[in-house]
Write a protein that binds this DNA or RNA. Structure first.
Length: 380
DNA sequence: CGAATTTGACCGGCGC
DNA sequence: GCGCCGGTCAAATTCG
């Protein structure tokens, strides 16, 4: 089941370092992402492959590429707080919304994104210019089930009762016009759900992840010949959405952005690759409670070994593997490691090849740690 | 025939 | 205020 060994993973750069040190994804900041290798693809091929999607992030910035990924989203005030909330409540930050950018470029043509390599997390503690406006309130936090960003707000003639994506009841006014009400109150913006994005090299746009999705829209992407598709989780009362688009510079790369957290376990048939694919997501992306979902995912993966590397602001970088996740009852028991990152400073896209090489060879396991003490502050 | 997708219209935010 | 743009709706269409 595990097509990829953890050691096959890596290339990574200093996306966060740049982001956080520069205060955002300015046009001059560089960013890079981990890629992963599929055994089906030769290393040479991989190395020779240009990383267009990465360049896009670099040169264009995320906001234009994945809408909603704005510079402000990349700010973190307290890495430790951020990390703790990330590990304990997943993406539900206590006081701010978050986004995670995970790059996973698989060499194969498989339908499944197989093994994540890097996860990059961002949050927007204060500002938000993205299309999905932030809420200064609990946003993703609250831990709470059932909140939704679409607001089922009552108040006005909103056409759909909370939660169900399918039934759009017509009110008596039943005009054909779309009358969606975004705000409950004047001045309040729509809540921003935690987001999680990753890039996958795949021939298919819609990657199998174990959940059922219904497409509800498609829009042309500016500056790209490829459209962006919008999906909703078909499970009742689950407000998770995802956007899928293809890199316009490298059509083989698919960018998937998840928004929100599933409030239910994986649908019935959790098997095979779907489970493996699902295993790449942080626990909270899969189910409401991190512990149970962690167990579920790990077990479902059946010994699926994979490794996450987290690169945090200010050169913090953490990682862990899930080799033994199946026997763990909670994420907290996952063996964790801290890696020393090679070439962390000033890595640029044109160092891409070198980074891959270096990352694969030079990653040093410094120590095993338990969650909660996973941060390693790199020397400048 | 019900479910899922397609697709053009609509909405709200934002910049000018 | 106007236009652009991302996101969503929902009727029409296609699919299984």
């Amino acid at each position: 089941m595990s097509d990829i060994e953890p050691k096959d993973l890596y290339y990574h750069g200093n996306f966060f370092q740049q982001v956080f040190s520069s205060g955002g994804l300015s046009s001059s900041s560089s960013s890079s992402f981990l890629t992963t290798q599929n055994p089906n693809t030769s290393i040479n091929q991989k190395l020779n492959m240009s990383p267009p999607s990465l360049q896009e992030f670099d040169s264009i910035g995320t906001s234009s590429y994945m809408s909603g990924f704005t510079t402000d989203d990349c700010l973190v005030q307290d890495p430790m707080e951020y990390y703790n909330s990330f590990m304990t409540t997943g993406f539900g930050l206590s006081s701010s919304s978050s986004e995670v950018v995970l790059s996973s470029i698989n060499g194969g043509s498989t339908n499944y994104h197989q093994s994540p390599v890097t996860m990059m997390t961002t949050s927007s503690p204060q500002h938000d210019h993205s299309s999905i406006s932030s809420s200064s309130t609990e946003a993703a936090g609250g831990g709470g089930g059932g909140d939704h960003q679409e607001d089922s707000s009552s108040g006005k003639k909103d056409q759909q009762p909370n939660g169900s994506e399918d039934k759009y009841q017509e009110d008596e006014n039943s005009s054909k016009k779309v009358s969606k009400v975004k705000n409950n109150k004047k001045g309040e913006k729509k809540q921003k759900e935690p987001r999680f994005a990753f890039m996958t090299k795949s021939e298919v746009d819609h990657l199998e992840d174990g959940y059922r999705w219904r497409k509800y829209g498609q829009k042309a992407v500016k500056n790209s010949p490829y459209p962006r598709s919008y999906y909703r989780c078909t499970t009742q009362k689950c407000s998770v959405k995802k956007r899928v688009e293809r890199s316009f510079q490298d059509p083989s790369v698919v960018i998937t952005t998840y928004e929100g957290q599933h409030n239910h376990p994986l649908p019935s048939a959790l098997r095979g690759n779907a489970a493996a694919a699902a295993a790449m997501f942080p626990p909270s992306m899969l189910a409401p409670t991190s512990s149970s979902s962690s167990l579920m995912v790990g077990s479902g993966a059946g010994g699926f070994g994979q490794e996450f590397l987290f690169q945090m602001p200010n050169n913090y970088m953490i990682g862990y593997n899930q080799l033994d996740a199946g026997s763990s009852s909670t994420a907290g028991s996952i063996l964790s490691h801290v890696y020393q990152q090679s070439n962390i400073n000033n890595s640029r896209m044109d160092d891409h090849d070198h980074q891959m090489q270096a990352a694969g060879d030079d990653y040093g396991l410094l120590q095993d740690m338990v969650p909660g003490s996973m941060f390693f502050k790199q020397e400048p």
